[in-house]
Design a protein around this nucleic acid. Structure first.
Length: 599
RNA sequence: GGUCCGGUAGCUCAGUUGGAUAGAGCAUCAGCCUUCUAAGCUGAGGGUCAUUGGUUCGAAUCCAAUCCGGAUCACCA
């Protein structure tokens, strides 16, 4: 149980004992961390009891404080300030906390349960390379998967590749017309970028054709429908669904180019998956689900043969599930995938990391599954995140403002190198070590930048700010970690000492304010981690780790560790910084950010 | 227009189930390296928590209305 919870329970027991005739609800007890300007560690708010007990705050505070001091072992003293009971925790509590946990590398982690969770993220289309918007998705999904795993869940990291549909056909058509058989090898371009180039080409041609038709006097809608290249793409989609060999072969070839490109990008980003789904393998199941729904009478068919679901009773509209020509739409394949995921793993929860522009889509998906009586429906959870925007507004591929993922990673690594060299911190490293360090810093900065904001909020990507390695950044945290490692090297201690090293530690001197600040934060890590899991919010880990690093830096400035006032103080501080480094590694590790031992 | 999300310092963001004088980072200004890594530390300035009303001992937080911004309401994915 966390310290804050212990305080709350102690207060509850005390109040019940002191006022047996007045029932007190646990929820009326508020325990906060004491503000730094007051003496104490944790504060019980007395106001809620005034009316209940018909006494003045000072009187209640005194009785409660006295009782807590006499009947529990964790409090050293108390202080009442205007309705707040500030409690100071005994130094011995902190000492035993340190002795009990400083050798752990998994402090904060929960026991494994059999609760099964799938986290789906990345989920790219195979018609263009990954861009900056994907990166928020990818890092968020990967971080959430690790956080949930640390929270005791059985986690399956899944990638759903959107490998079929009209968008792929567009790239294929343009490639057929304009590529002269170019391959990634012959063109010297990464496969995903090559295919993406032809998707762009398609759109250019399409726009030209529409413009030409409008010039001939057609209205916009008709022009969009009649553009010949679009008709070709649609024809190709039908052939694909019919299993046309030539189309399937080209499709396979081009997709494989893209996969090799993606794999390279994922590898660079340090991203892995446990399971990969392809929509080409699930859309038929989706169609089957629709047909079953039709048979059950949950869905209905219109005159043109298209199939719909009526969601008016749920405040939504009618939604198309199959086109008149029998081809499936976006949501059709999602129905199949949702069921398949559930059947594969018997999931308690299935998390979709998808941008908030698809809130409606996910709502519809869950609703349809529920209507169809599929058991997977209840577990569907949309982890909806806000879009990444530039200071000038939304990124638009049309205007060429989309930031490419591969470029972004190399740029950040390059900047890490530039700034490390400028700071003159390259001595004592081999070439390989430096390359690894730049990657650790650059990639860490990027991940942290994208994860430090509450995922639900849309965020602004300011290129100028993202390259800053000062302040609220991964670099700041990495630096604190490297400082700790440096001290441990000097003391000839491993990052995690064995349990006998501080076994005979006996506390003699009082804990200082700066020491206490660190201890309070160290103790809170398990609660922060549990909260990040419960709220699906990696940003709280970013905030916590930054604060911990900040507190360490101040502590480091105020107190010498190697030259502490006494051997006893030195040991105490060594245990503290060992634990600090372990928690920084653990928390940032969940976000996929490495902590260097030297920088 | 319907639905959903958001509005906190010049900028980017924190702010637990309502609790003490609303906090960080960046930017600006002033200090701190003969002492464990200055990618650091200390301090200063900077706020009508969009607005108005309500609930209460107490509201950035809860409720209502209004204003502003965004997303979505496709036989695109």
């Amino acid at each position: 149980m966390t310290l804050a919870a212990q305080v709350k329970h102690a207060a509850y027991d005390a109040l019940r004992h002191l006022y047996p005739d007045t029932p007190i609800d646990m929820n009326t007890i508020t325990v906060n961390q004491t503000k730094p300007e007051f003496t104490g560690d944790y504060t019980i708010v007395l106001f809620p009891f005034l009316k209940l007990l018909r006494q003045k705050p000072d009187a209640i505070g005194k009785q409660l404080g006295d009782h807590l001091l006499e009947n529990t072992s964790i409090f050293a003293s108390y202080d009442i300030v205007a309705g707040f009971l500030n409690l100071t925790i005994k130094d011995s509590y902190w000492v035993s906390f340190l002795l009990g946990h400083h050798t752990r590398t998994d402090f904060g982690q929960q026991m494994k349960t059999d609760h099964r969770v799938m986290v789906e993220y990345s989920s790219p289309n195979t018609n263009k390379p990954l861009h900056f918007g994907h990166m928020r998705n990818i890092f968020l999904g990967a971080a959430m998967a690790e956080i949930l795993r640390a929270d005791g869940k059985q986690v399956i990291k899944a990638n759903l590749i959107n490998d079929r549909g009209i968008h792929i056909c567009k790239s294929m058509i343009a490639w057929q017309h304009y590529a002269n058989g170019a391959t990634p090898e012959s063109a010297g371009i990464k496969g995903d970028h090559l295919v993406g180039d032809y998707y762009v080409k398609f759109n250019d041609i399409y726009k030209e054709q529409v413009a030409a038709l409008i010039a001939q006097g057609k209205d916009e809608k008709t022009a969009e429908k009649e553009a010949p290249i679009m008709a070709e793409a649609q024809d190709m989609l039908r052939k694909w669904e019919a299993g046309d060999k030539a189309v399937r072969d080209l499709w396979e070839t081009m997709n494989n180019w893209v996969y090799r490109g993606f794999d390279e990008s994922y590898k660079k980003m340090g991203i892995t998956f446990d399971k990969v789904y392809h929509e080409s393998e699930t859309y038929l199941l989706g169609k089957k689900i629709v047909e079953d729904g039709l048979a059950k009478g949950v869905l209905f068919r219109k005159e043109d043969g298209s199939v719909w679901v009526d969601l008016k009773a749920d405040g939504l509209d009618e939604k198309l599930l199959l086109r008149g020509d029998g081809t499936s739409v976006y949501i059709t394949q999602d129905l199949g995938t949702a069921k398949l995921k559930y059947d594969d793993y018997k999931l308690d929860r299935s998390i979709y990391v998808i941008a908030d522009e698809q809130n409606y889509h996910l709502q519809v998906l869950k609703l349809i599954m529920k209507k169809l009586g599929e058991p997977c429906a209840d577990g569907i959870y949309h982890l909806s995140y806000g879009m990444v925007e530039l200071p000038t507004g939304r990124m638009k591929s049309r205007e060429g403002t989309v930031v490419d993922a591969d470029d972004m990673v190399s740029e950040m690594v390059r900047l890490a190198q530039e700034q490390t060299e400028a700071a003159g911190k390259t001595e004592g490293f081999s070439g390989d070590e430096l390359a690894k360090l730049y990657e650790t810093i650059g990639l860490g900065a990027l991940k942290f930048y994208l994860l430090r904001v509450d995922p639900r909020k849309k965020m602004v990507f300011d290129p100028k700010e993202s390259i800053d390695l000062h302040g609220f950044t991964a670099t700041f945290i990495q630096y604190a970690h490297a400082r700790i490692c440096s001290i441990l090297r000097r003391e000839q201690l491993p990052l995690v000492p064995d349990a006998t090293r501080f076994q005979s530690f006996k506390q003699a001197e009082p804990i200082s304010i700066n020491e206490k600040e660190m201890l309070v934060q160290l103790e809170q890590y398990p609660a922060i981690l549990a909260d990040a899991a419960a709220e699906y919010n990696p940003a709280s880990l970013c905030n916590y780790a930054f604060k911990l690093a900040q507190t360490f830096n101040t502590f480091y400035d105020v107190h010498s560790i190697s030259k502490a006032e006494s051997e006893e103080k030195k040991d105490l501080r060594l245990m503290m910084i060992i634990m600090t480094a372990s928690i920084l590694r653990h928390s940032m590790g969940l976000l996929g950010i490495r902590m260097p031992e030297k920088m």
